[in-house]
Deep mutational scan, measured.
Amino acid sequence: TTYKLILNGKTLKGETTTEAVDAETAERVFKEYAKKNGVDGEWTYDDATKTFTVTE
């Protein structure tokens, strides 16, 4: 399944996708990605669109 991440950081904005077996796995991948890019904020997930959003 393809999951999407929307980054709404103070200095970094953008989108990325990952293939994962479930939302929990995708969330771990995306949180590591955000951490590596210095983005830390509020996380939300929309199951209907398989989209995570992190907003600083």
Results as ranks from 00 to 15, higher is better:
G41P: 01
D40Q: 14
V29L: 12
N37K: 14
A48Y: 09
L5I: 03
N37L: 15
A34T: 07
K13T: 11
T17I: 10
T17A: 08
G38W: 06
E32S: 10
L12R: 12
V54L: 11
L12H: 15
F30N: 00
K13F: 10
A34W: 03
V29R: 10
E24Y: 14
K10T: 11
L5K: 00
A34S: 05
A23P: 15
V54E: 01
Y3W: 08
T51Y: 03
K4D: 02
E32G: 06
A23S: 10
T25V: 10
F30C: 02
N8K: 12
T16W: 15
K10P: 08
I6Y: 08
E27L: 11
K4R: 12
N8C: 06
K10I: 12
T17R: 07
E56C: 05
K50R: 15
E42G: 06
T2N: 07
E56H: 09
V54P: 01
V39I: 12
D46S: 07
E19Q: 10
L7S: 03
T18F: 12
L7G: 02
T1K: 07
L7P: 01
L12M: 14
A26R: 00
G38T: 04
E56S: 08
T2F: 14
A48T: 11
T1Y: 14
A26G: 02
V29N: 06
T49S: 13
T25R: 06
T55H: 08
A26I: 02
T53L: 05
E15I: 12
T25C: 06
K10C: 11
E15R: 06
G41T: 02
T53Y: 11
V39D: 02
V21D: 13
T49C: 04
K10D: 07
T49A: 10
G9I: 08
A26Y: 00
V39Q: 03
Y3L: 01
K35E: 08
D47T: 12
V21R: 07
T25N: 11
G14E: 14
N8D: 15
E15D: 07
A23N: 07
K13W: 11
E27F: 15
K10A: 14
E24Q: 14
Y33V: 05
G38C: 06
R28L: 12
Y3T: 00
A26T: 01
E32W: 07
F52M: 02
L7N: 02
T25Q: 14
A20K: 03
E24F: 13
A20V: 05
Y33W: 14
L5Y: 02
E19M: 13
E42F: 13
D40Y: 14
Y3A: 00
K10E: 06
T2Q: 10
T1P: 09
K50L: 09
D46N: 10
W43E: 00
K10L: 13
G14T: 12
T2K: 10
K4V: 11
N8M: 13
E24R: 11
A34D: 00
A48S: 13
I6H: 05
T1Q: 13
D46K: 04
K4Q: 05
V29E: 08
K4P: 00
A48W: 08
D47C: 05
T1I: 11
T17G: 04
T2I: 15
T25W: 08
E19F: 13
W43D: 00
E24H: 10
V29P: 01
T18E: 04
A26E: 00
A34N: 03
Y45I: 02
D22I: 03
V54W: 03
T1V: 09
T44A: 11
Y3Q: 00
T49F: 05
T11F: 13
N37T: 10
G41S: 02
Y3C: 01
K36A: 10
V39C: 05
R28C: 06
E27W: 15
G41C: 02
F30W: 02
G38I: 04
K10S: 12
K35C: 07
D22S: 09
E32K: 08
Y3R: 00
N8S: 09
F52L: 01
D40K: 11
T1L: 11
A26Q: 00
Y45D: 00
T17C: 06
A20H: 03
E56G: 05
E15P: 04
R28H: 09
V21L: 14
E42Y: 11
V54C: 06
L5G: 01
K4H: 15
V39S: 03
E42P: 05
G9F: 13
T53K: 06
V39K: 02
L7E: 02
E19Y: 13
G41A: 02
G9L: 14
L5S: 01
R28I: 09
T55Q: 07
E24L: 12
K36P: 01
A26H: 00
G38D: 07
T53E: 05
I6K: 08
K50C: 05
D40T: 12
K4C: 05
E15L: 09
T25M: 13
A34Y: 03
K50Y: 10
T18L: 13
G9N: 04
T18I: 14
D46M: 04
Y45R: 02
V21F: 11
A23W: 14
I6A: 03
F30I: 01
E24M: 14
A48F: 12
L7F: 12
I6N: 04
E42I: 15
N37W: 15
I6R: 06
W43N: 00
T44N: 11
K31R: 14
T17V: 10
V54Y: 02
V29W: 12
D40E: 15
W43T: 01
N8G: 04
Y45N: 01
F30P: 00
E15G: 07
V39M: 07
G9R: 04
Y45K: 01
K31V: 06
T55M: 06
F52W: 09
T25F: 08
V39F: 11
K35A: 15
L12I: 13
T53A: 05
L7Y: 11
V21A: 12
V21S: 14
L12V: 15
A20C: 06
Y45L: 02
D22A: 04
T55W: 15
F30K: 00
G41H: 02
T44F: 11
T53D: 02
A34Q: 02
K31C: 04
I6C: 05
